[in-house]
């Protein structure tokens, strides 16, 4: 029996509330993180991601208290990302109740941070998040919430991050993000085929078929989505039933 594919609702958190950014712009508020996380757990989510979208403004404290409150009732893995700048930030998030910390800009600016965290906390705790945008035949890595081009090739950076000890790559297509037109299949597959760690595809999910597509043709190990779940369009259980009908192996949904 191979590993099941994971469905991961992502909660973009701003000032302690959940939002969903459209192309990193035009944020609006949709709910309370701990409540939503537990609701997704009930629906059969395999994991939850909290992404702090303005960590530098709100300070890390707000997020940590949301994490602490969530961990009380969440018995599936929780990943926290956004504004994680240092080894101490990673540690603080894990101690607050996160199972994994996702590092983005800080990993690009100091790649040694990846190995330092992997050695201390184990690779399974260290997720490297990559925001990539099409450039010519390849994709370029952007940092600082997509505002800064780095000149790095996304596939090469993913490989380096995995070699340095990242246990997982969270790959967001900036071109697809917010469009609801589907994940970037080509980008996802290129990264999946070049690394030996699991890859979570992100950005562009508008329908169940998009998830089917990125898990099948994109070969992703997991699919992350936000708005299709937040606005009550679909439950995680709906999506999983659809995936099963497509012959994709998923964890059985035990709704409670």
């Amino acid at each position: 029996m191979p590993l099941t594919k994971r469905i991961i609702p992502c909660l973009d958190v701003k000032d302690g509330a959940v939002v969903k950014g459209i192309c990193f712009k035009g944020l609006r508020s949709v709910g309370d993180p701990p409540t939503l996380a537990v609701e997704y757990q009930r629906q059969g989510a395999d994991e939850i991601v909290f992404l702090d979208v303005n960590a530098s403004v709100s300070g890390l404290g707000t997020m940590r208290s949301a994490v602490r409150k969530t961990a009380e009732n969440l018995f599936i893995p929780l990943t926290v990302g956004g504004g994680i700048r240092s080894f101490e930030d990673v540690r603080a998030n894990l101690l607050a109740g996160a199972d994994k910390a996702s590092i983005n800009s800080a990993a690009v600016e100091d790649p040694k941070l990846i190995s330092r965290c992997a050695e201390a906390f184990g690779s399974q705790c260290v997720v490297v998040a990559i925001d990539a945008k099409r450039k010519g035949d390849g994709w370029e890595v952007y940092t600082r919430s997509g505002s800064r081009a780095t000149g790095l090739d996304a596939v090469a950076w993913a490989k380096e991050a995995a070699e340095r000890g990242a246990g997982e790559i969270l790959l967001t297509s900036m071109d697809a993000d917010g469009t609801k037109n589907g994940y970037d299949i080509e980008l996802t597959r290129a990264v999946v085929r070049s690394v030996h760690v699991p890859v979570i595809a992100s950005g562009g999910c508008g329908r169940t078929e998009h998830i089917v597509d990125v898990l099948k043709r994109g070969e992703a190990d997991a699919a992350l989505a936000a708005s299709i779940f937040h606005y009550g369009e679909l439950t995680v259980a709906d999506v999983k039933r659809a995936l099963e009908a497509e012959g994709i192996l998923v964890r059985k949904v035990v709704e409670t």
């Binding site: 029996m1 590993l3 099941t4 594919k5 994971r6 395999d46 690779s123 399974q124 246990g167 997982e168 030996h196 760690v197 699991p198 190990d221 997991a222 964890r251």
Partner: peptide, 11 residues
Amino acid sequence: AARVPHMGWNE
């Protein structure tokens, strides 16, 4: 295994 860590839900 081809992909390590073994990360996710398994039987």
